[in-house]
Amino acid sequence: MTSHQNTQTMKPATAAKKLGVYLEATPAEFREGVVSRSELSALQADPPEWLRELRRNGPHPRPVVANKLGVSIAGLARGGVTEALTTEQIEALKQEEPEWLLRERTTQAEVRKEAVRIKEKNAERAEKARERNA
């Protein structure tokens, strides 16, 4: 019996998310088709000009915008940013440093510090448990 392997495909939205680009800014042929795993790998390994341009100048999806600004996605929403932004718009926001951005960056820094504290505490507990069991 011969096994037939089906090519795994994904929706364009999933592929765009994996590539870190805003779906609506991709070419029509990308948005209207399906993307196989091998096609995705090829796009990641050797991105075409349209993909390089999108990654360089945007518009960028919210997770990328949040990362570039150093805030959470929820922080973007609280700041009123609900749409994709270009690199130029992101740089302008960084220069302006609106109050909401400073506040969200502070919040994000506190969240990261707390995550590190919890991770260290859990590691300490695990080490004590190993010592007790040894």
Rank of each mutant, 00 (worst) to 15 (best):
P61A: 02
N133C: 04
P12M: 05
G33E: 10
V116I: 13
E97Y: 08
M1L: 08
Q8A: 13
A129F: 08
G70W: 02
E24L: 13
K121N: 13
T14H: 07
T9Y: 09
E83Q: 15
Q44V: 00
A66F: 02
V21L: 01
R55D: 10
E32C: 01
E32H: 08
L19E: 07
V35A: 03
T106C: 13
N57M: 08
R130N: 02
G80I: 01
E127W: 11
E32N: 13
S72M: 04
L51Y: 00
T7V: 15
N6K: 15
A115G: 01
L54G: 01
E49A: 14
E83N: 13
R31V: 01
V111T: 12
V116E: 14
H60M: 11
G58N: 10
T107E: 14
E114K: 15
L19F: 06
F30M: 00
T26M: 02
H4L: 15
V81I: 15
Q95T: 12
E49H: 15
V21A: 00
G80N: 05
I73G: 07
L93Q: 09
A115L: 02
K128D: 07
G75H: 07
P27Q: 01
E49R: 12
V35L: 06
G20F: 05
M10R: 03
K94C: 12
R105T: 14
R37H: 10
T82L: 07
K119L: 15
W100G: 04
H4R: 11
A16Y: 01
E83R: 15
G79I: 02
R112P: 00
L54T: 01
T107A: 14
V111Q: 11
K18N: 06
A129I: 07
S3M: 14
W50G: 04
P48T: 09
T86W: 06
E83W: 09
V34I: 06
T106G: 12
P63N: 14
E124G: 00
L101W: 03
V81M: 03
L54M: 09
N57Y: 07
S38I: 11
Q44T: 09
W50C: 03
Q95Y: 03
R130C: 03
Q95E: 14
R62W: 00
A28C: 09
H4M: 13
T87C: 05
P12I: 06
A16P: 05
R55Y: 10
E120A: 12
L93T: 12
M1C: 09
R103K: 13
Q89E: 15
R37A: 14
L101C: 04
R56D: 08
Q89G: 06
P59G: 09
G20R: 05
E131M: 09
A74W: 12
L69H: 05
K68S: 09
E131N: 10
V35Q: 05
F30L: 01
R56H: 08
G80V: 05
R52M: 10
E114A: 12
T82N: 09
L93C: 11
R55P: 02
P27R: 09
Q8P: 03
E39D: 08
A123P: 02
L40A: 11
Q108W: 02
